[in-house]
Structure formats: structure tokens, C-alpha cells
């Protein structure tokens, strides 16, 4: 168990390049922007597909 805990600690330190990462707000804004673009884009695709199908079924009937 002790050995496992030590490995985790080393991995965390390696990940943070041996210290706290400061700033990097460009990455943060990038991640949040990607999130909004994907979710809003998918919402629009749902709305458009719904409308196209309604139009299509109206013509069919």
C-alpha cells in the first residue's frame, strides 16, 4: 500500500512538472468554449432535424 501511495504522489508531481501550475487561462477558456460550441451546436442540430422531419412528414401525409 505504501509503495502504491508513493507512486501516486510521484505521478502527481510529474504531472504538475514538480510544482503548482499557475495561469494558463488560455487553455481554460479553450476548454469551456469547446464545451459551449459542442452543446449549442448539438442543440441546433436537434432543432433543425426536428423541423426537417416535421416538414417531411407533413408532405408525406
Amino acid at each position: 500500500m505504501e509503495e502504491e501511495a508513493e507512486t501516486e504522489s510521484i505521478t502527481l508531481q510529474d504531472s504538475a512538472a514538480g510544482g503548482r501550475i499557475d495561469g494558463k487561462w488560455g487553455y481554460i477558456w479553450g476548454a469551456y468554449s469547446v464545451t459551449w460550441v459542442l452543446l449549442v451546436g448539438y442543440t441546433l442540430s436537434l432543432v433543425l432535424r426536428g423541423r426537417l422531419l416535421r416538414r417531411s412528414s407533413g408532405v408525406e401525409r
Binding site: G23, I28, T35
Partner: peptide, 27 residues
């Protein structure tokens, strides 16, 4: 999003970058 970006203090190890985890982990 506002809570994760502005109302939470930075992580002790990863600093502000840890805020990305508030969208990464829930997804």
C-alpha cells in the same frame, strides 16, 4: 460554469487549470 470559473479557489497542485476538470469529469 460561472461557479467553476470564478467562485472556486485554484487547486493546490494544478492551479487554475484544474477548472477544466469541472467540465471534463461531469462529461
Amino acid at each position: 460554469q460561472v461557479f467553476g470559473l470564478f467562485m472556486v479557489p485554484p487547486d493546490a497542485h494544478m492551479g487554475d487549470v484544474a477548472r477544466i476538470l469541472f467540465v471534463h469529469v461531469p462529461s
